[in-house]
Write a protein that binds this DNA or RNA. Structure first.
Lengths: 225, 225
DNA sequence: CGACCATTTGATATGGATCAAGCGATGTGG
DNA sequence: CCACATCGCTTGATCCATATCAAATGGTCG
């Protein structure tokens, strides 16, 4: 039951010196056994209700998962960026749909293969569980965002993105205003206005609509309530 | 690091006819090994940030989990009723606090005991994972509630409660209006008004403030969008 | 250059919050 | 046993944050 910590460091697929070790971690197994696959901007990766036979790890690009209500409102559940795993379900159907936001490369692996591996390797089983747990806490945080004011939601979103996709304080947003709005439960107009307000308050800079520079993180954190 | 499962067996309250069978399911293990414990109305069961060493199964009563934001806003994450398991985390700290809503009896069991059991029994491991998955889908549904209108949220809440705690169409709500409001991201006034509106629309009846009779489920479902 | 799409900005509308008062049930002390 | 405080809930009046409707701007690609 000992786990080599170094094995958990999932190396890019280029070389793979230690396949046996890799198979003792989930990440390793995906990197080693996963099939590369590409999706163009806005392509569907899977649809809500389809059998959840595969899971995915983002190599490059960004993915959104979402649900559409009967009246057309769309709720985005999450954004997945390079390194993130998505599509893992405990039920046998996907509960959300998934689309590539930009051209995206993923590694695909059969869930049954991992479940079989988990049956033999407790550490893999534990990591599979941990992955669902990670997803759970992400969704719980999302709920907390949704009860806040527009400013707080946008500030929280920017900080989240900065944590995940920043070079220093500069963040390149892969998603549109509509995507952000549907993630935050706001309209595009409110998102846009809020960003302008934050810019006027010198909390951020907007060199272009998709690029955001965090000028004053503590101000954003304060807004994050 | 090894945990003796039997060490966690806290006084099987009654007799135990089938210990081996019971230990092959999570529910069985909890029922068999869990220690009974009681909490009075509003008593804290655990606090956010405390070590998540135990998990709990509701025997009678109702439990709420919640977080309080820095400015005092409270978000209720979930209500747990008899048969429900709560307090299971993959991290080692509780991410929410838990309180008894009414006088409540639970079974308590050490997480490490179950994890140890899971290590030997793949079925238990699978069920532990499934439990986290169940929680995940519950929270995802909660998100969908939070983006809806007040009427839709209340209607959705009533249908959820009816599924979980009804005798026919009559539902006895264990929680206050404030609890409902904090679950739905609304104020008590809005919850109250919305209930009145639904009553006037003949969708429900309100014999008393805690008892609700569903008169027209399809109307409620329609509101549920 | 011109068409198109994403984004911003402006004007107005509105759902739910807030502030405030009333009401009914429950409990307590005199 | 009753008067009265308390608490949870409902109802009313007003306000405000965000949605909606509409138009202008800007960036991208043929």
């Amino acid at each position: 039951m000992l786990t080599d910590v170094r094995a958990a460091v999932s190396k890019p697929m280029s070389n793979r010196a230690t396949p046996p070790v890799a198979s003792h971690t989930l990440e390793g197994a995906i990197d080693f056994m996963g099939a590369p696959m590409s999706f163009t901007r806005n392509a569907e990766i899977y649809g809500e209700g389809e059998p959840a036979d595969y899971l995915y790890k983002v190599v490059s690009g960004t993915v959104r998962t979402y649900k559409v209500l009967s009246d057309g409102r769309r709720q985005i559940g999450a954004f997945y960026m390079p390194g993130d795993v998505f599509g893992l379900e405990t039920s046998d159907e996907h509960t959300f749909s998934a689309e590539a936001i930009a051209d995206t490369k993923v590694l695909v692996i059969k869930r049954s293969a991992l479940v079989a591996l988990a049956q033999r390797d407790g550490e893999v089983a534990r990591q599979l569980w941990a992955l669902t747990g990670l997803e759970l806490s992400r969704v719980q945080d999302h709920i907390l965002l949704l009860i806040k004011t527009a400013q707080e939601r946008v500030a929280g979103f920017l900080l989240e993105m900065a944590d995940r996709a920043s070079n220093g304080n500069s963040v390149e947003l892969p998603m549109s205003r509509q995507d952000i709005a549907d993630y935050l439960g706001l309209t595009i107009e409110t998102v846009s206005r809020t960003l302008t307000t934050l810019e006027n308050a010198a909390a951020i800079e907007l060199p272009s609509s998709r690029r955001i520079v965090l000028r004053n993180r503590s101000a954003l954190s304060r807004l994050n309530a």
